[in-house]
Design a protein around this nucleic acid. Structure first.
Lengths: 162, 162
DNA sequence: GGGTAATGGTTGTATTTGTAACCAACAAGA
DNA sequence: TCTTGTTGGTTACAAATACAACCATTACCC
């Protein structure tokens, strides 16, 4: 019986906290719009940060391009997103939220904000600040897109995620 | 363009941090032992907290019983775990680590500890303490097994996870 | 004791995800 | 201009996951 405790092991703790806190919110976008996690992430990126290509979303959200490709196809089928081919570079397609997509986004933002408020209701302002800061560092945010705190144990691909 | 920022939204942040921090470690148990995340979780529960049944692991780790059933079958095939039927209640099977299973566990504990140390290397002791505390509360640890901080947005099953 | 529900666990099937391969368009150098 | 490499994106197939149904055993209780 080792001393090592799962309940303080960061990857485990983070996964449990992530799953637990995602549950309530994922039910909403699933029940209301039949979306998957990949789909709301794409929706949120377009809604919050403006039109962009699939590749750009991939870089920001660290999602593999196949995930994005499928998420975009699903959002397109739901009429939430439209594509526009870039005439200067015909490989690229700029993605835009439709009016309907924006309504869904606006609706979900309200839910997300309320959910987040509830999640942090039992944390002090100081705790919350430290928590967010640590998580952003662990997630590799802030230092451009590249990885920050967590070098590989024995190296892994730098450009394609998962 | 809403004010809402994904990079401070807890479920998103937690998922990103969880994924990022899990990457290096998952490579090790995958490469060295061909294990899945469900498998190392079962292995760690048995190694750290002693023999127990699949149902008990499910309660502790908040894993669905089908995941555990398959993880146990895989660990058994690898000769890392053995089962012993409870004579008092013939539905139950107590799971135990084999000598080989314990060696794998001991090996992975060392890796996990080193990985965790590296992850928190850039955090102050105070930051780390707050981080762990917040995550445990968000994950619903500490208050028995039941949920703590994150009530459902509109209610969800209490006993089966996911 | 007999019926009904609850518990421990497994299996089957539909979804989702991961991984690799692929195609088309562009870039850069010989 | 050829050719080699890179980038943006899709598709095909394998692996993993969720979900429901299932079986066996035990618990409850009339």
């Amino acid at each position: 019986m080792s001393e090592f405790d799962l309940r303080t092991f960061l990857p485990y703790l983070l996964n449990q906290a992530a799953e637990e806190t995602s549950l309530g919110f994922s039910r909403v976008y699933k029940d209301r719009y039949g979306m998957l996690r990949t789909e709301w992430r794409v929706l949120f990126h377009l809604g919050r940060y403006g039109d962009m290509t699939a590749a750009e979303i991939g870089r920001r959200a660290k999602m593999h391009k196949t995930k994005i490709s499928r998420a975009v196809a699903a959002l397109e089928a739901k009429r939430f997103v439209t594509r526009r081919e870039d005439s200067a570079d015909r490989r690229r397609e700029t993605l835009t939220l439709s009016a309907q997509g924006r309504r869904a986004f606006d609706d979900l933002v309200v839910v997300a904000e309320a959910h987040d408020t509830r999640l942090t209701a039992n944390l002090s302002a100081g705790e919350r600040a430290v928590l967010i800061d640590c998580l952003q560092r662990l997630a590799g945010f802030g230092n451009g897109v590249e990885r920050a705190l967590s070098p590989a144990i024995d190296g892994y691909k730098q450009d394609e995620y998962q």
